[in-house]
Design a binder for these strands. Structure first.
Ligand code: ZN
Ligand code: ZN
Ligand code: ZN
Ligand code: ZN
Lengths: 179, 179
DNA sequence: AATTGAATGTTATACTATAACACTCACTAT
DNA sequence: ATAGTGAGTGTTATAGTATAACATTCAATT
């Protein structure tokens, strides 16, 4: 069953490695992400139900990592019956489909900016503005592969999470100091 | 105040990148780790109290990641009054001093094998045997540095956690399949 | 019309972590 | 000596994160 059959323009594959924290057209981020999710669900024959769609929309309200119980609070006006399992089930689905990533070190979630295809990524997590930037970092992934070969380790999944200051916040801290 | 003044032999700096999951003298791992912790605490003028020492010992019972409440259960025979804060405080201390690492993706902890000096590391986490191997992976760290430069990101801390099968478990799975 | 299965509703509970305040006791400064 | 200080611990309570288990709904199939 289809809940959303409006025809979005073909999803433009967002270029990773352009900084989300810089000024950008965030409405475009969101509509791309939602359109892509709908498209992918159609292709896979899985259901992007209203709850799942709304949770994805809520996650995409910003590039900040968002917590499950925050999502729960924010979906309640739309889904009066929402309880923790409501959110966790939606998160599980969105995560399986690759539309979001879990940030292990924050117990939180972010929208994925390249969910049209499986991919490896690392996360740059700003302690100041809480925005998370996803990067494919092919050289890092290559070095990792070599490391796994050395260790004879068979990889199933990776969580590469870097905490610090994004370029914007680093710049404004520098400005503050020079004042 | 000193709780432990027995003189251990000077802590031998354990070589990282020898696989913990392979057969090895684990008593040596433990005594090295405990001796190193005592030595470092002496040098830094911080207290390795009985509770902290016992928690570190419990964490070192194996190379598996261990959870806070498991530690709580296991320390209760020794510390009847132990409650969650008992464990979490000890974990905080041990973590600050670099004697253990938190495994973010498991909400668990492992003993650090090179706690005599600050260092970067990645963790190879086996889904089969739950052992965690710490590796310095200098090439990966170098590639990461370059990535951070590109992103103009200022790093404070890293969590690089890889889930999969360790060499031992991969080998035994292969054996199982060929049977 | 009966069956199936995915999704959701509902209740309860498990698991993880910290806040806040009280108490102890070795150490220090008068 | 003695009062004060501060780190560590004891204690109670609660906040925050996540899932188990079972009931219900409803569109799609038989
Ligand atoms: Zn955006
Ligand atoms: Zn920032
Ligand atoms: Zn060992
Ligand atoms: Zn293993």
């Amino acid at each position: 069953m289809l809940y959303y059959n409006t025809h979005y323009p073909a999803a433009i594959i967002m270029t990773l490695n352009d900084l989300p924290n810089q000024k950008h057209n965030h409405k475009q981020c969101v509509s791309n992400a939602l359109a892509m999710a709908e498209q992918v669900c159609l292709e896979r024959g899985v259901q992007l139900t209203p709850i799942r769609y709304q949770v994805l929309e809520l996650i995409w309200e910003s590039h900040k990592a968002v917590k499950a119980y925050e999502l729960l609070d924010r979906i309640k006006p739309l889904q009066m019956a929402a309880k923790p399992p409501t959110i966790y089930r939606a998160l599980e689905f969105l995560s399986e489909q690759g539309f979001i990533h879990r940030v292990e070190s924050l117990n939180a979630f972010i929208g994925c900016r390249c969910s049209n295809a499986p991919h490896e990524q690392l996360l740059l997590i700003c302690k100041n503005c809480q925005e998370v930037e996803e990067r494919t970092a092919p050289k890092v992934m290559q070095a990792l592969s070599e490391e796994f070969n050395d260790a004879e380790f068979i990889v199933h999944s990776k969580a590469i999470e870097i905490h610090g200051l994004c370029s914007q916040c680093a710049a404004s801290v520098a400005t503050d100091l020079s004042d």
